[in-house]
Write a protein that binds this DNA or RNA. Sequence first.
DNA 1: TGCTTAGTTCAATAAAAAATGAACTCGATG
DNA 2: CATCGAGTTCATTTTTTATTGAACTAAGCA
Lengths: 163, 163
Amino acid sequence: MPELIEQESVDEKQLLEESVDYFVSFVQMFGLQKSVGQIYGMLFVTEEPVTMDRIISVLGISKGSASQGLALLKSLGAVTSHSIEGDRREYFEADLNVSRIVTHFFEERLTPRLSHGDQKLERMLRLADVEGKGSSPIMGRLQALKKWQNRGLSLIPRLLKWL
Amino acid sequence: MPELIEQESVDEKQLLEESVDYFVSFVQMFGLQKSVGQIYGMLFVTEEPVTMDRIISVLGISKGSASQGLALLKSLGAVTSHSIEGDRREYFEADLNVSRIVTHFFEERLTPRLSHGDQKLERMLRLADVEGKGSSPIMGRLQALKKWQNRGLSLIPRLLKWL
DNA sequence: TGCTTAGTTCAATAAAAAATGAACTCGATG
DNA sequence: CATCGAGTTCATTTTTTATTGAACTAAGCA
């Protein structure tokens, strides 16, 4: 009974597929590409570290996607890599690091947008004020919106602490 | 000094642009189309109710986008409409209803995905268990993942209550 | 120091998502 | 009860986003 690395039981194949599916769906909630979810899904159910060419052949994705996806996952702390003596290739494995992924999402996607929105809202308040009518219905809406925005902004650090 | 509805001061035009920009960015955080943000942004800084053809001409969007965008915004409770005696057209206006928009996002986009993921995760646990090794590293990862998922799932109702 | 090849980059291509607009519905009006 | 036109629908087109793959970089080895 040869122990080739290519050998996988039916169950292992199913598990791989489920995992890939699961994480594709997961990362898409956070606006990341499908390929990132595929890679993480594969690594998540693979015990031994794997090389990039293995990822490419198992998932059927391109070298470019694999390289970029792995780079992103490494930057998230969701994947680690190391090299092996006498082998030029890198070996990748999953790190179960849900909070890092979610934190990255907040800090890279949400917070910049919110602070950009903050500036916009200040400008709108100034414009609406210059209009003369300091207590126009529009002014009231803008002030209410500002309250909401501050509420949202204050939620983020609390969420990150909770993670 | 004729009081045509088309007349707008420079400031009003700027305010409109800022508002449109602001809400385009806002709704895109929740995966809604640009046109939805444009429409809401316009209505938000427009005191009097406006007709659909006005929205179309001011924003330069198509009838289809306007109709679908308004339908979505109405379903969110972010826009209300009424008709006027002797005028077939509907008149739309903004309702400052941030929580409805965010709640919709959670209920329509996040929750279905999470519960779908829940089923997937259960199947994965069964598959990993059948493999024999009840305490394999993979099994450990899956169990840790399940904890995270339950944590996330329990967060949603709390967030919705907070809104 | 030149060769091989693992990994990166990015312009070109493919896939996915959103916007368009023409055909349609349907209620109001003369 | 025929016509008008406001609003809807959805197949087509456009725009946006993700993926590909060939050229490139550079690290290890002879």
